[in-house]
Amino acid sequence: MINKYAFTSFISQLNAIIPGERLLIDEPMSRHTTFAVGGPADVLVLPHTVQELAVAIRSAKELLLPLTVLGGGSNVLVLDGGIRGVVIQLNELNKVLQCDGLLLRASSGLMLGDVCAFAQQNGLAGIEFACGIPGTLGGAVFMNAGAYDGEMSKIVSRVQAINDAGIVHTYDAAELEFSYRHSRFQLTQEVIVEVELALTADDKAAIAERIDVLMSRRRSKQPLEMHSAGSTFKRPAGHFAGTLIEQTGLKGFSVGDAQVSTKHAGFVVNMGHASAEDILNLIREVQKRVQSAHGVCLEPEVRVIGESRK
């Protein structure tokens, strides 16, 4: 139960700088996540500027309100009871997208596909692996997202982030503490606002061809047409999660309207009317059966946030 006085004070403070259409009370998170599930956020803030973002973070912290920050709403499962306190989503931040030689600067709220397209148009290579990853640039850095032998840690050279006092700090690559699906920001909870990528020069047509090949592979093997949060499980050492799940006979297995994808067993999809509880129960059942069959513990890549329905 959040402090109602603190919540009212927060809304009052934010109303002074953010219009009501970007300050949404009791907003269903199913409208803002790629799984298309999730109960209401007490308040969802959609900042357009770094200043608005800084004020929202600082106000929430000063008033001791719980704070959750999301990028594009991918790679998360918001539970059916919703999220208490303040939720800030970054995909409406004013967009910075420019290059200076081999360096590309971009706002964290930009979708990865848009950053990849801009890089290709400017003859910059190295980020092609990320073109089909659902989500924002900031979210990809936060999770150190990767695919097809590429990883954000290989191309990120600098990151700007805001701490809970609303102060912006710049980190060089060596300070980002990247490891498999991990960055420093998972521990510090600083909010990424801008990213610099160090890329390489290449022929625009050659880059476009590599993107087309990777996207064709994705479309043929992954359920991109379905509501999902991307790859559901981290890759266990020495194995592939999707292969283990398929070998356990779980391809197509469902709980309610949540299903292990028939196209790629490493993805859990919402067939249309799944609840977050359906998805969570399916994930747990997959974990249990794979552990029993292969002795391997599958760790979810998807972040579970919020509360269960009471």
Rank of each mutant, 00 (worst) to 15 (best):
A56L: 03
L53N: 07
V141M: 09
S153A: 15
G139L: 08
N94A: 13
F142W: 15
N75S: 14
S107A: 11
L70G: 06
I127N: 01
F142M: 00
N94C: 02
G72W: 00
A130R: 05
V55Q: 13
A56C: 05
S153H: 13
T49P: 11
L103S: 12
V168C: 12
V50K: 14
A119G: 05
V96K: 12
F118G: 06
A56G: 11
L44C: 12
A119D: 08
V141I: 13
G126V: 11
L70V: 04
C131I: 08
I83A: 08
V76Y: 10
P40Q: 02
V156A: 01
Q121R: 14
Q160L: 13
M143A: 12
P47C: 10
I162T: 11
N163F: 05
L46V: 02
G85L: 09
Y148N: 12
D100E: 15
V141K: 07
S157G: 03
A165L: 12
I167Q: 13
L93K: 08
Q98A: 12
V86C: 09
K154S: 10
V115M: 13
F129V: 12
L93F: 06
I127M: 15
T170E: 14
G146T: 04
Q160R: 15
L65M: 12
V168R: 04
V43Q: 06
A130W: 06
A60R: 08
D164H: 14
V45I: 13
R84I: 00
A119R: 08
K61E: 14
D164E: 13
G166Q: 05
L67F: 09
G109S: 04
L46M: 12
G132E: 09
E128T: 14
L90S: 00
T170I: 14
V96H: 05
V168K: 08
A173K: 14
G101Y: 08
C116F: 02
L77I: 09
G146V: 03
I83F: 05
G101K: 07
Q89K: 15
R58S: 15
A130F: 03
V87G: 04
L137D: 07
A147H: 03
F118R: 09
G126S: 11
T49F: 10
V43R: 06
E52H: 06
L93D: 05
L44E: 07
R84W: 00
E52C: 10
N122E: 09
E52P: 04
L137R: 05
V159A: 01
L65F: 09
A119L: 08
E92H: 13
S153C: 13
Q98I: 01
P66V: 11
A41E: 01
L46I: 09
L102Y: 02
N122V: 07
A119N: 01
G132L: 10
A106V: 15
L93W: 05
L112N: 15
H48Y: 05
A140T: 02
L104Q: 03
Y171I: 01
V159N: 03
M152W: 01
G123Q: 10
Q120R: 14
I167C: 06
G71T: 07
V156Y: 03
E92L: 09
